[in-house]
Amino acid sequence: MAAPFSYEQAQRIAEVFSKYSVRYLFIGKSGAIILGFPDTTQDADLFVKKSTENGQAIVSALLDLGFPITNAQQKEIERGKDFVQLRSGPFDLDLIFAPDGIETFEGAESRSLKVQGLPVCHIDDIIQSKEATNRVKDRESLPRLKAFREWWLINH
């Protein structure tokens, strides 16, 4: 089992994804945490643009980061699945190509912001995605996340 995701690993993602020009955004609770939301989570969730070019860049970046993905898995990522879960690398990573509640990557990217070099979805997109997903664990965290949104908008 991988160790918890760390600041250094997030910075390494930013470095390597930039090297291969991967278009991505931190999303989900991991994104909210980067924005300042004090809560706990287990995985890093990345919203990645679904295109062959970006898929190829993602594969190159994952291999560079040390994820042991097979040729078949590389082809799947290049083709663009909607959701890929990686549990074999230096940290656990979820790649989300089509998050619920967000229409386009371009739209989310235009609303995103950078926190110490880490591209992050806007808090409204994070909330919208969790509302659309509507899992038990999302419903439990949404009231506090919405309160954080109110606080964050006033203080940023």
């Binding site: 760390s6 600041y7 300042g36 898995q73 990522i77 909607d82 890929v84």
Partner: peptide, 27 residues
């Protein structure tokens, strides 16, 4: 850095953590 150290935790999640790779065509 400090916020991330407090926020990212790791506990075993049955089934979910049992394979190294999983993918889905649609959400």
């Amino acid at each position: 850095k400090e916020r991330m150290r407090y926020s990212f935790i790791k506990t075993y999640k049955p089934v979910l953590d049992d394979v190294p790779y999983r993918s889905f065509d649609t959400m």
